[in-house]
Design a protein around this nucleic acid. Structure first.
Length: 917
RNA sequence: GCCGCGGUGGUGGAAUCGGUAGACACGAAGGACUUAAAAUCCUUUGGCCAGUGAUGGCUGUGCGGGUUCAAGUCCCGCCCGCGGUACCA
């Protein structure tokens, strides 16, 4: 009987739905396990084969855990607010909600076809008011909270007010507006004038992680710096905890490193420098306190508040010209053009150790947002200061013995100090410590830890996002009462900004609360994705984000699978958001994602045809790839992307190519053998009569005609083949091109597998058959637990080969269970064919039964490359020499040396290969 | 520049604790079946050398060293590729 995958898959998908097979309850005696995929943004293009890669992996793991007897939460939802839907709305006038809902429907349909075991009852959409009620709720909570630096956690701001009421007489004397202004400096969600990344083309501000090399990540438009009044989240308060928390979670080293880098902890010192002729000093930050003796000038960031204090009248005009220039440079220009620029302020500072007078400059190589926006420059030991000193002819004093600073600075933190007073002779590291001690004792400065992580800018001047639950009274923001949530997104007459430059919500009618104007900005994309994993636990609850008892049951995401591109965005924000909710007692775990796996990207594999453009070219002749380096065609062909769906194993379907686009209707070909016969059949043509396409690995995109739709693969091969094949492509974490060249092999295997279940018998299995099965059980269990899904498929193939025509129930039943996580449809049908009328969702993974495995391995010792592994006893206290002796001797000696403590020794005939001591 | 990851046949990739490198699949070649093709099945397939043959020998995991009875795997020094980040003092 043929393997009719379409029939099987439709049948079981319908059956699962009918039975509610994947419905997950919050009440269960079973142990909980939470497996989560990063939810997608539903784009208009639909899913391509790259998207399901991580979903398949998490689905395998979920199904495995379920088979092992866990209650597995495995939900899916949609990150459905975002720029593309809005851009589309501006272009077409279609409401973003409409297109978003259409896209979601399409995504759901595509996902269901692949046979995922999601509990669709728990689906969430970030643009749904019942969902964003809780996004607004959290924002409101952040507005009403502050970060207590002593307790190192968030507390209700009412506690701070109570403290001031009790201890701070000035508090009561302040007007309400003044009180609100003071509180704004403490709120975790706060409004302030901030230097922001403004993208004129997108008409909105962007967070730091949404900008890369001076261009917007979405769209690639230039970004400039601008000061605007914006909402921000005080993420920086959590920098220390975000860093330290990484040590307690099971993420890959590379991802942790990316986050550590982004958080950017650096230990240094803040130091005060007096300004000549002024009373108040200014403060700088340095990690090289040891180099104070070599400071020959100071530099301020152009935006530094110190600037106005130190500019002399004589220099004012020049400074203002420079500041004006800095203001108009975009981030990108600044990065691209690294020429040394700067201007002298006219003032001098006093080096607190040498008492010498040093000039104060302004330069944009100093950043206002980091440290204090002011530095002490040590040209001998910092390459940037060096370049500046050379440009302005400032003195360079070497501080480390043997350092040659005539051509470049010596930046390494090693060597012995010279020219440094009481530090002379010390190693750099000792000198840093000694100087820190000195400045602390003398009060010149203090030890300080600085973080690179900035507060997250939370306003977006866009329409398609969560409205802020905020209204303005007397120019100050207030949050809506909790019972007024959700504040639903209003209809607008136009999705573009208003005539006078207000965000699109300015076009909404009656956008007020009790007569007060409501906030016109909306929240950024990461708002909705920062706590969605908590909402899945209890998505129908309208009293709380998640019920406390329910949260206590599921606790946190045990396994999170998604791409690395969220390392410095979503994965920072949601950790912050989670810690905040944890501080206030709403949830019970302070890290959201216990284990995280990054799946690689699937790139496109483009195909090309080569149009002949040499002498006498008609523009209609295409040369086979194998010939393009021949002298007659070399440099006379032009590669053209061809739709990969009309190419199979790099062989062009000629008829389909001619039908593809009108311009190819009369295409003629030079085939692999160099001939140009006209009526050449595509399939079945001998190899030399085919047209071979070239290929390249590129991003999967419509314009390169290399997008492969999973629906097409499912229609042609079935969901089980797609699932198996995506896993078979290579290790999960690795990026790899989509290449259908091997898919037939996997499909063939499934057909073979299917045939084993033709006539299931009750015969007793042979020892060899049991051995094959147990080897497989061990292998598949190891693979799944170690996320090594790609190596399971060969194991299945080998077992199927070894089992041959074995049709015994005792083998086939466990075999169906083993393959169920990977290929659930065929497994269900196979299980059914073994005589089990319904699939046993809770069937124990055979390996869970330790005794079963133990017995099996004793009875049929697992072989190693065809040779038996000996298990022998060796004395626990055997010395290295004795062991070496054993190594040199034969198996017989080994047996004689056997003692009381069992230790494993692996033997290859005539040679011992491994001793476990 | 800095940080992280990787480099294995014609291709994707195996090798899980340092233990017979190249599993499995694709592709290719040959064969069976067939009027023919598709499908299916069987054999061969890292390179070089010897042999009619079964087989044997040498070589081989980016390059150069080292540790070890044993190295794709560990250590040191390079080269190349990918990803992240970038005036962060």
């Amino acid at each position: 009987m043929d393997y009719n995958f379409q029939e099987i898959e439709q049948k079981w998908q319908a059956e699962w739905e009918k039975q509610g097979a994947y419905h997950v309850s919050n009440q269960s005696d079973k142990k909980p396990f939470y497996v989560l995929d990063m939810f997608p943004y539903p784009s208009g293009a639909g899913l391509h084969v790259g998207h399901p890669l991580g979903y398949i992996a998490s689905d395998i793991y979920s199904r495995y855990k379920r088979l092992c007897g866990f209650n597995v939460l495995h939900p899916m939802g949609f990150d459905s607010y975002g720029l593309p839907a809005e851009q589309y709305a501006i272009q077409t006038g279609q409401h973003p909600e409409k297109t978003t809902m259409q896209n979601i429907a399409r995504y759901v349909e595509q996902l269901k076809k692949i046979g995922f075991c999601y509990d669709w009852d728990r689906e969430v959409k970030t643009c749904d008011p019942s969902f964003y009620k809780w996004t607004q709720w959290a924002f409101r909570l952040m507005f009403n909270s502050y970060y207590d630096t002593k307790l190192q956690k968030a507390r209700p701001i009412s506690e701070l007010i109570a403290q001031w009421e009790a201890n701070d007489p000035t508090w009561k004397s302040l007007s309400e507006k003044e009180q609100q202004e003071r509180l704004m400096n403490y709120r975790i969600a706060y409004l302030s004038d901030t230097k922001v990344n403004w993208c004129p083309k997108l008409g909105t501000v962007l967070a730091n992680d949404e900008v890369s090399e001076g261009l917007s990540v979405r769209g690639g438009y230039p970004v400039e710096q601008r000061v605007m009044r914006q909402w921000s989240l005080r993420v920086s308060a959590y920098a220390g905890r975000l860093l330290e928390g990484l040590d307690r979670i099971d993420w890959t080293d590379s991802l942790k490193d990316t986050q550590r880098n982004w958080i950017g902890r650096s230990e240094g010192a803040e130091m005060q420098f007096q300004i000549k002729g002024q009373d108040t000093p200014f403060t700088i930050f340095t990690t090289r306190a040891d180099t104070v003796f070599g400071v020959t000038f100071m530099v301020l960031a152009p935006e530094s508040e110190y600037v106005s204090r130190v500019v002399t009248d004589a220099q004012r005009a020049e400074v203002e010209t420079y500041l004006d220039r800095c203001k108009h440079r975009t981030e990108r220009e600044r990065i691209a053009d690294r020429k040394v620029t700067g201007v002298f302020t006219g003032s001098y500072a006093i080096n607190p150790l040498t008492n010498s007078e040093i000039p104060i400059y302004i330069s944009d190589y100093v950043l206002s947002g980091y440290g204090t926006g002011a530095i002490m420059a040590v040209p001998a030991h910092d390459s940037r200061d060096y370049a500046f000193a050379k440009h302005f002819n400032l003195p360079i004093i070497p501080l480390i013995e043997g350092a040659d600073v005539s051509e470049e600075s010596f930046d390494a933190k090693e060597g012995k100090m010279i020219n440094s007073g009481f530090l002379n002779g010390l190693e750099v590291k000792e000198a840093i410590a000694k100087m820190k001690e000195y400045i602390t004792n003398t009060g010149i400065g203090r030890v300080k830890v600085n973080y690179r992580l900035r507060d997250a800018i939370f306003s977006r001047q866009r329409y398609w996002g969560e409205p802020f639950p905020v209204y303005y009274k007397d120019g100050m923001p207030y949050v809506l009462p909790e019972d007024q949530l959700p504040l639903t997104l209003p209809e607008v007459s136009d999705f573009k900004p208003t005539e006078d430059g207000q965000p699109p919500l300015g076009n909404a009618k009656d956008w007020t609360y009790e007569g007060y104007p409501l906030e016109l900005c909306t929240m950024p994309g990461f708002a909705g994705s920062s706590a969605y994993y908590l909402r899945y636990m209890d998505n129908h609850n309208d009293k709380a984000l998640v019920d406390k008892e329910v949260n206590k049951y599921w606790r946190q995401v045990n396994l999170y699978i998604g791409g690395t591109e969220h390392a410095t965005g979503h994965l920072i924000y949601s950790r912050f958001w989670n810690k905040f909710l944890y501080d206030l007692g709403y949830i019970c775990e302070d890290e959201p994602f216990q284990k995280l796996i990054n799946q690689g990207m699937i790139q496109g594999r483009s195909n090309f045809v080569y149009r002949y453009i040499g002498e006498g070219a008609t523009g209609n002749l295409y040369v086979s790839y194998n010939l393009i380096d021949n002298p007659e065609y070399k440099d006379k062909v032009q590669p053209i992307h061809v739709n990969v769906n009309i190419v199979k194993n790099d062989i062009l379907n000629i008829q389909a190519f001619r039908d593809w686009m009108p311009e190819y209707k009369h295409a003629e070909f030079v085939y692999a053998d160099g001939t140009t016969d006209q009526d050449n059949p595509y399939l079945g043509a001998p190899a030399e009569k085919q047209y071979i396409c070239g290929w390249a690995i590129e991003k999967m995109s419509k314009s390169m005609f290399n997008v492969v739709n999973p629906d097409d693969v499912v229609a042609q091969y079935g969901a089980d083949t797609l699932r198996l094949y995506e896993m078979f492509l290579g290790p999960l974490e690795m990026s790899k091109p989509w290449d259908t060249n091997g898919i037939d092999g996997v499909h063939r295997f499934l057909r073979k597998f299917w045939n084993m279940y033709e006539n299931v018998s009750n015969d007793e299995p042979t020892a060899d058959e049991l051995k094959s099965l147990h080897k497989l059980i061990k292998k598949i269990t190891w693979d799944i637990e170690n996320f090594s899904f790609n190596t399971s498929i060969p194991a299945f193939m080998i077992a199927a080969n070894e089992l041959g025509k074995c049709n015994k129930r005792a083998i086939l039943e466990p075999l169906a269970i083993l393959i169920a996580p990977y290929a659930p449809h065929i497994a269900e049908e196979a299980w059914h064919r073994c005589g089990n009328t319904t699939f046993v969702i809770d069937a124990a993974w055979p390996v869970c039964n330790e005794a079963y495995l133990e017995e099996a391995t004793i009875k049929y010792p697992i072989q190693f490359m065809g040779k038996v592994k000996f298990t022998l006893d060796i004395a626990k206290d055997a010395t290295k020499e004795e062991i070496e002796k054993i190594v040199m001797n034969d198996e017989q000696t080994l047996k004689q040396l056997a003692g009381n403590t069992p230790k494993r020794v692996i033997v290859v005939p005539g040679r011992i290969v491994n001793i476990v001591v």
